[in-house]
Nucleic acid binder design. Structure first.
Length: 480
RNA sequence: GGGGCUGUGGUGUAGCUUGGCUAUCAUCGAUGGUUAGGGACCAUCAGACCCCGGUUCAAAUCCGGGCAGCCCCA
């Protein structure tokens, strides 16, 4: 038994979360470590999931009128330094190219930590008139941020994949409207596909994006009790326009600075999804994002093998609207295969053996609950569809109640500390001052104001730190 | 930013305290055969001491440095 267990996950998710996470990520074939610290391989299994996220986000933003393009990986130092707050925010973790072959470069080149600088330099050339606006460009690419904290696959990597939307408008109103269109796109994809519930809100001034006027984010709760920031959208006002000289002549022939937004979703969300849905047997993938939705495991005996395989193939064809895999490998026993597919988180398994054929039935097994349904062969398609739908729905609900059940209202610093120590997220009144924000961080061992929910009650209690009148309720949590 | 733990075939490990002979066991992989409804079995084969330096007749083992992974604290 002990040896058998070693092929699967050897620790319980509740008992040792980080070990569990590492094992799930590597043993299921999602990712692997490389010789470069903090840079992982996205193996085909996780890359397929990223492609799905990409596809769903991409078609929605295109519908909103955004176009894709590609800008250089390298950013000259002088360009990066144009917006003071922006450089200051990113410079500690920029990777630099200082040499080409044996020749030292005249000017250092930053490996993009984000592309404002290089993109806006082009924008300033392209935008002359109100007729050139809006300009809405997105790119799907990789960025490098040389973190010094411990890397965690997907959740904290030095190189990661994302989209970066960079849009320019003639008026503040138009720009601000777009922020909510984009947040909706992210919400739809993350909730409906990745089955994850997040907390939407505005970032505090301390936490907003370097260079932005304000930032909205979705925050997610990990099983470890720590929060992770998900997709975000920033309204930049005219800050970058002024730094990078993005001006246009309006209809009244007056020169104006443009209004800009920036927005992104990253591969970090995959990590959140693996961590939230997985269980002691391994991954659990939401049906709508799973590269393989259904696996058919035929039970093969020598004398009935052909018959069972033939029927399995028929079922596979019948299920062509789903992504189905038929596991015909003869070198593994059925039990071994069951365990492997569970480790990989495939949502639905169909078992088909001679006994089933005799009774004209198949066994349908749902990954998250382990529930087995015996169904007549003619109903297989219907049952599979129902099972996938139910599972998708149930994973989201579970994710939502996980967040809600772990969200506490804290009226003072003692309660706040107590809840945070118990791995909870908190909703607490805050006076809006940066000093109190720093104090909270200091006193709670690093907990941050995650964001400020959009809907606020009429009155708030006293600020959890200074005791002055609270201006808003904020989400507070320890972060990854 | 500070402190701690760990590094042995692809993976998980024994050996390290007290230096010594062919580096343990399992799994994975390859080949052949028997099997098959929740991680089947037999036989054969293949595969490792993180890197650099030091101490020593002799280093997986001791010392120093590096790199990597993990944990705790700020």
């Amino acid at each position: 038994m002990a040896e058998e267990e070693k092929q699967g996950i050897t620790v319980k998710k509740d008992a040792d979360f980080s070990e569990w996470y590492t094992q799930v990520i590597t043993k299921s074939g999602l990712a692997d470590y490389t010789k470069v610290s903090g840079c992982i391989v996205f193996r085909p299994y996780s890359y397929a999931i990223w492609e799905k996220v990409k596809e769903e986000v991409d078609k929605r933003i295109k519908k909103l009128g955004v176009k894709n393009a590609y800008f250089p990986l390298f950013i000259p130092e002088s360009l990066l330094c144009k917006e003071a707050e922006h450089v200051e925010g990113f410079s500690p973790e920029v990777a630099w190219v200082i040499q080409g072959g044996d020749t030292k470069l005249n000017e250092k080149l930053a490996v993009r930590p984000t592309s404002e600088a290089i993109m806006y330099d082009s924008y300033s050339k392209w935008i002359r008139s109100w007729r050139d606006l809006p300009l809405r460009i997105n790119q799907w690419n990789n960025v490098v941020r040389w973190e010094f904290k411990h890397p965690v696959p997907f959740l904290r990597t030095r190189e990661f994949l994302w989209n970066e939307g960079h849009t320019v408008f003639a008026t503040k109103e138009e720009a601000e409207k777009e922020i909510f269109d984009i947040l909706n796109v992210y919400k739809e994809v993350v909730e409906d596909y990745m089955a994850l519930y997040g907390l939407l809100g505005k970032k505090s001034d301390r936490e907003r994006f370097a260079g932005a006027e304000y930032t909205y984010s979705f925050e997610y709760l990990m099983p470890s009790g720590k929060a992770v920031q998900g997709p975000d959208a920033h309204h930049d006002g005219q800050k970058f326009a002024k730094a990078y000289d993005i001006k246009f002549l309006n209809k009244d022939k007056k020169e104006e600075y443009a209004w800009q937004n920036t927005w992104a979703i990253t591969t970090r969300m995959l990590g959140v999804m693996f961590a939230v849905h997985g269980d002691d047997k391994g991954l659990v993938l939401p049906p709508k994002i799973a590269p393989t939705q259904v696996v058919i495991v035929p039970i093969l005996f020598d004398n009935t093998k052909d018959k069972v395989l033939r029927k399995s193939k028929e079922i596979m064809e019948e299920l062509e609207e789903f992504s189905v895999e038929l596991d015909q490998r003869e070198e593994y026993s059925p039990g071994w295969k069951f365990n492997e597919w569970e480790l990989k988180g495939v949502p639905v398994r169909i078992e088909l053996g001679p006994k089933d054929l005799d009774k004209d039935q198949a066994v349908i097994v749902r990954r998250d609950t382990g529930e087995k349904t015996v169904t007549p062969l003619k109903n297989v398609k219907k049952t599979v569809k129902e099972t996938l739908d139910k599972m998708q729905d149930s994973l989201f609900k579970k994710s939502k109640s996980f967040v809600e059940d772990n969200l506490e209202e804290a009226a003072n610093i003692d309660e706040l500390k107590k809840f945070l120590d118990n791995k909870k997220l908190c909703l607490a009144p805050w006076c809006d001052s940066g000093e109190c924000e720093d104090w909270i961080k200091d006193q709670t061992g690093g907990a941050k104001i995650l964001n400020i929910p959009l809907e606020q009650p009429k009155s708030h209690g006293k600020c959890v730190w200074c005791g002055k009148e609270g201006k808003r309720l904020v989400y507070i949590g320890k972060t990854y």
